[in-house]
Simulated scan of single mutants.
Amino acid sequence: MKLANKKSSTSFIFLGTGAVVAILSVWVFFELGDTILADERFRFDTLVNGWVDQWTTPAVLQWMTILTEFGSVLWLTIVTIAVAIWLYLKNESVTAIVFFGLACASGGLLNSLLKQVFQRERPIILETVDGTGYSFPSGHAMGACIIYGLSAYVIQRQMKNTVSKVVLIVCTILLVTIVGLSRIFLDVHYPTDILAGFSAGLVWVLTALSIMEWRRSVRRRRQLLSSYS
């Protein structure tokens, strides 16, 4: 009984923390969006682009061309399918697997919708690295945040070792950050596009995780009640 209460308390703490982070992310996104709709410039873009220019070399650009593919639609689709198969092999419920797939796929639809709403033009068009269409928010940044974030969550649920969980989370954050930076180095996105992509993606991830945690909490309570009935 104490263990069940502890797990329930942990779920509520997770949901509460997630709600705070989600609210902050929504605020950041709409602050950026409001400025873009007003057709104003960002000092943040100028500062970050200035820093990026100092580190830009042919070798760095070659690496960024490779690393940016980790945020491409094709690669993220492969990751989603691979994780879904892994969940099936781990005997996860069909409902959980379907929800994971829908959460990943619908994030892409949300990004397309947001691009149509804000219609911000890119710094340059570069088809070789998927640098086409509207710029805000970054599809690579948002997609990487959603797919890798949700994948890391469902994978770490199966891990027993705390150190392994921490390593997975840190690697996930680094990978998502690198994908975002690659878009700035390749000059196909403004830094604020990336920041908006991360913000929108984080909100989407936290919403999906909150639903997952809520479902797990309800299922645990039902199991607990049935064991005492």
Score class of each variant (00 low, 15 high):
Lys6Val: 05
Ser8Pro: 00
Ser9His: 04
Thr10Glu: 12
Ser11Trp: 04
Phe14Val: 12
Phe14Met: 15
Leu15Glu: 08
Gly16Met: 05
Gly16Cys: 13
Thr17Gln: 06
Val20His: 08
Val21Tyr: 01
Ile23Val: 15
Leu24Gln: 08
Val26Leu: 15
Val26Tyr: 14
Trp27Val: 08
Val28Asp: 06
Phe29Met: 06
Glu31Pro: 00
Leu32Gln: 10
Leu32Tyr: 15
Gly33Glu: 08
Thr35Asn: 15
Leu37Pro: 01
Ala38Gly: 07
Ala38Lys: 15
Ala38Phe: 01
Glu40Leu: 15
Glu40Gly: 09
Arg41Ile: 07
Arg41Ala: 13
Arg41Thr: 14
Phe44Glu: 03
Leu47Lys: 05
Asn49Tyr: 03
Trp51Asp: 05
Asp53Lys: 14
Asp53Met: 13
Asp53Gly: 04
Trp55Gly: 10
Trp55Val: 09
Trp55Asp: 00
Thr56Ala: 12
Ala59Arg: 09
Ala59Lys: 10
Leu61Thr: 14
Leu61Gln: 12
Gln62Tyr: 07
Met64Phe: 11
Met64His: 07
Met64Val: 11
Thr65Ile: 04
Thr65Phe: 02
Ile66Cys: 02
Leu67Glu: 01
Thr68Val: 07
Thr68Leu: 02
Thr68Cys: 05
Glu69Cys: 00
Glu69Trp: 09
Gly71Asp: 04
Ser72Phe: 02
Val73Phe: 11
Leu74Lys: 10
Leu74Gly: 00
Leu74Thr: 09
Trp75Phe: 12
Trp75Arg: 02
Ile78Leu: 14
Thr80Glu: 01
Thr80Leu: 05
Ile81Pro: 02
Ile81Phe: 13
Ala82Trp: 01
Ala82Asp: 02
Ile85Asn: 00
Ile85Thr: 08
Ile85Pro: 03
Ile85Asp: 00
Leu87Glu: 03
Tyr88Phe: 12
Leu89Lys: 12
Asn91Ser: 10
Glu92Arg: 13
Ser93Gln: 11
Val94Ala: 13
Thr95Leu: 06
Thr95Gln: 05
Ala96Leu: 04
Ala96Thr: 07
Val98Trp: 06
Val98Phe: 06
Val98Ala: 08
Phe99Lys: 02
Phe100Ile: 05
Phe100Thr: 03
Gly101Asp: 00
Cys104Pro: 01
Cys104Gln: 05
Ala105Gly: 07
Gly108Cys: 10
Gln116Thr: 11
Val117Thr: 15
Val117Tyr: 11
Phe118Gln: 00
Gln119Ser: 14
